[in-house]
Write a protein that binds this DNA or RNA. Structure first.
Lengths: 193, 193, 193, 193
DNA sequence: CATGAATGAGCCTTCATTCAT
DNA sequence: GATGAATGAAGGCTCATTCAT
């Protein structure tokens, strides 16, 4: 097994799925972009579905790591939430293709690919949940908010903002500014002060 | 032209698109469920895309109206936001198929169907923006939050919670409870107190 | 039976068949152009094939009559052949749609519509055959040429020239000039001198 | 890519198009007759149109070559014209399917397939034009006849005779005899004597 | 392992024809 | 007779997947 070929296929798939959408994307096109033969794709992935799922599971790893690193560098739960948001927005800007997959294709997959459990995505959301629990423990955050509700709310809010930015062709408005507003609201919302 | 037939096709399409997803849904199946011949579909809709777009544009109308009605029955901006959230959650529970389309298929369409402007969806979001502006004017809400950021954040938060509820097979957890938490956070977040 | 409606359908069919070709032409389009409902077409014609056949059989009548008149006004077989050619070229210029049907669609029909005997077309060709027989009888033409071979040759030659003129977009070259050359060759070819 | 498969498809297409006509012919039937799967057709040809155009362009090559060879073996322009006619009639008898395509489908294609320039067919006609020019230069032929008019006339005459023979089920009459008459008329017609 | 030609099931869409009004 | 909405069979084309080399 050639790890390099597998990686190239994965990277190519991210690009093509982002550009064309999962359903309109052609396996042949992905293979071509990865500089391998069409059939080779099936040596590394079971089928087209598996390719998408593998992206979600594997490309999420560095994203999760970056997020955890950014978060761990902060002391307070407040700052950790800010770090999470900031890190996510950076990811969206620096890996726009992967970001689009998360924004646009992930939901389809969650619903229609029955073999997909979405472990890694849950793991990503749980970074938020953990910060919330921590903040509640140390008194920064109100304790009447369920962390697993908050994690979804925060992610949903960020995701919607990012989706909007992604789909806007001009991309003229500033994602950083939006990030500050997200932080302002969500933190004020959950703050114990 | 038979308005009834058109409606039946639209309703059938909502069901089939929700169940199978837009891409895997078959026009023939929609026609069968609407009790018309396959070709009849094309007397009322240009093509499969048009069917989906028509759903978004037309089925949103009563949803928008219900939301506006619910909102208008409240005095304060605070209560209006609560009404918006509550109304949305009701819609999700009472029209689960349409809700799923909004949660799962809308994004694809926004990105990949280039003829689609998404007017009605924007209209729905603008209900929130208007409440925010009103709340800022009368001092209920902080004025440093941009209404069009908040509308996306709130919708994103609600949407993510609902998506989660929709995709969870058991649907055992209470959507109402989640609604209260959404309101608690977002309102506290934007409150001027 | 409304003879007027039938005629309108026939005229419309000539236009649409000429413009779009028999196979790509839509019955609905013909009906629309004739200002009748789609279904009405089937009150006057058995089916799409019948519409085309009817054109060939009925629209040929005035063409045959005009040709016979033009021919009968000449004394010699020589002049009659010239008259036939001239008349045909005029028809092509004045009824370009019908001419195109004869040039482009007639052959398909002859081969693929098994119910079609092509009587009227044969009648048209026989005008030539009769002139030839007459010319052979009075010594103008060589007697070793079979009239039914000559009629096909002459028609084929004229037809190919006309087809070329029809398909050339600019139509800048002069059909009259070509007519003189056709006459020069074919008459010199069959002359007894 | 398997050149053999491509050839088989081309040969099968000639047969099926000749038998059923271009529009009624099914790609699936052509594939079946070529012993390949339906989709394979699209590896070698862009679409059904391309299949027909490819026939015209590629199957004309040996026909043109045979004609040029036959013509070049004759000394006088007179004999060359005879050779052209004779060769064409042989082709019609030996490749009746291809002949039928030229007689019946070529015109449709010239008119309705806008991507088709008809190069090879023009090349074939130009064999005649060249002989005419040669005959005019050496005094065999009258110089008042435009070669490009004569080429069309001669081809049209031959083509109509052949079409008639092709469409007559019995094929009892002798195509050779018709060939002699064509030569007699057209050569006498253009002769300088 | 790698290839890429071959496969063939599958689906959207068209349109001649019908028939209830 | 006239209408035109409805029908549904049919077919061109695509593309995920396979497999002989």
């Amino acid at each position: 097994m050639d790890a390099n070929k597998r990686t190239r296929l994965l990277k190519a798939a991210v690009k093509v799925f982002a550009r064309d959408g999962f359903f309109k994307a052609k396996v042949e096109e992905i293979a071509r972009m990865a500089n391998v033969a069409t059939g080779t794709t099936y040596l590394y992935f079971e089928n087209k579905d598996d390719l998408l799922i593998s992206i979600f599971e594997e490309e999420m790893v560095p994203i999760i790591e970056a997020s955890e690193k950014a978060v761990s560098e902060q002391k307070t739960a407040f700052d950790k939430i800010v770090a999470f948001i900031t890190n996510h927005l950076h990811m969206v800007q620096e890996s726009p293709d992967m970001a689009q997959l998360l924004e646009v294709e992930l939901r389809q997959s969650s619903k229609f690919i029955h073999t997909y459990s979405g472990t890694k995505f849950k793991e990503y959301l749980d970074i938020i949940a953990r910060i919330v629990a921590e903040g509640q423990k140390n008194g920064e955050f109100r304790s009447d908010i369920h962390p697993s509700i908050f994690k979804q709310m925060l992610f949903g809010a960020i995701d919607q903002i990012c989706l909007n930015w992604t789909l806007s062709k001009s991309k003229k408005y500033d994602l950083e500014k939006s990030g500050e507003q997200i932080a302002a609201i969500m933190l004020n919302g959950i703050s114990n002060r």
